Amino acid sequence: MTDITIHKGITYAERETGEMKLDLYVPKSENPPLVVYMHGGGWITETRSNIPDPERYAAEWDYAIASVSYRLQAVPDGADVEGMSDPANPTPRGTFPDHFVDVKAGIRWLRAHADEYGFDAERIAAWGSSAGGHLALLAGVVDEVTDLGDAFTEEVEKTVVPEEAGTVQAVISWYGVADLTLTDDAEGVIPLLMGGPQSEYPDRYAQASPVSHVTSQSPPTLLMHGREDEVVDIEHSRRFFDTMDDVGVNAIRYELHDLNHVWSENIEDIESERVAMDLLGADPNHAQSVYEATHVEQGRSPDSLLPDLPPAGPETIRQFLDRTIK
């Protein structure tokens, strides 16, 4: 197993509400690619420690892994989701699109400091779970924060190493939110995130949806989702996959039969992303279906993203990263 150098609590941005930090795990190998992880937690809770064993997978995969904090959604007193927010969470807060602004700032900062920490600035993948999956997908299909759209123009600004690119070369989404327009709730997390219901802010819902920004230049994407997910409906991943297929971008989608959010079997048993990989790998023979969109230029042979089609788990991610950014 490769030795790992760990850098914890690196400040990558100064915000009015506090310092934004990241943790970085770098294998002692020659210029490894980088995976940037965004944690789940409904955009309003959890911290960058909510990640599946980064020291282990940095070593086993031979990839640098960064877990990036992003500003969590501010929750006003009396909000119907107030009970989900942990007052003791030290992560600074803001309002959307601050979350996305921070993710892109973290990617740009990491690219600017690649030589200092010893990884490859040109080979970067975004990986996220649930709300973090939304941010990872958005990071993949929106090159820069200023491209998000007119609905957020006044709030979006590049201040952290703006000369660097915020692009990524591959994306992994675990049960990520891909299309906010699927939500018509008047209350809840997403109306809080968007500042109100979709009927009042249709442009915000559309522009904050990764599926709205997919183009033929979007990076290849691995989507993994449980068919029984009661928190983020599997239709999010299906719709994103179909859109990528329509524009000719390679993508692969795993559907885990009978699994709920965070790879639990029941919504009452949902745990954190810290143990998600263990849950996912607990039964490698768990029923699952795999859908692949492989697009080929005329005169060339198909090049599958996952030629071996391993069961969903760490080997799936490693093979996908090896095919896309190694």
Rank of each mutant, 00 (worst) to 15 (best):
I4D: 13
K8C: 15
I10A: 07
Y12W: 06
A13P: 07
E16I: 03
T17P: 00
G18C: 01
K21N: 09
L24A: 14
N31G: 07
V36H: 06
G42H: 01
W43H: 01
T47R: 04
P52M: 08
D53F: 03
Y57N: 13
A58R: 13
A59T: 12
W61G: 04
W61R: 13
W61T: 07
D62I: 07
V68W: 06
P76Y: 09
D77R: 13
S85P: 10
D86S: 12
N89A: 12
T91I: 06
R93A: 03
F96N: 03
F100N: 04
D102E: 08
G106K: 07
R108C: 02
W109V: 06
L110H: 03
R111W: 04
Y117H: 15
F119I: 14
D120R: 02
A121V: 04
A121W: 06
R123V: 07
A125I: 00
W127Q: 11
A131Q: 04
H134N: 09
A136R: 00
V142C: 00
V145M: 01
V145E: 05
L148D: 00
E157I: 08
T159V: 12
T167F: 10
A170R: 05
I172F: 05
S173V: 06
V177W: 02
T181W: 00
T183G: 12
E187W: 09
P191H: 14
M194I: 02
P197A: 04
P197C: 15
R204H: 10
V211N: 00
V211D: 02
T215E: 05
M224R: 02
H225G: 06
G226S: 01
E228L: 11
V231C: 11
V231E: 09
D233P: 15
E235T: 15
E235V: 12
F241G: 01
M244C: 05
M244E: 08
M244S: 03
V247S: 08
I252Y: 05
R253W: 04
E255D: 15
H257P: 08
L259F: 09
W263D: 08
S264W: 06
N266V: 06
E271W: 14
R274S: 10
A276H: 05
A276K: 06
L279T: 09
A287K: 10
A287D: 11
S289D: 12
E297L: 15
R300G: 12
S301Y: 13
S301G: 03
L309H: 13
T316H: 00
R318A: 04
F320P: 01
R323M: 08
K326D: 15
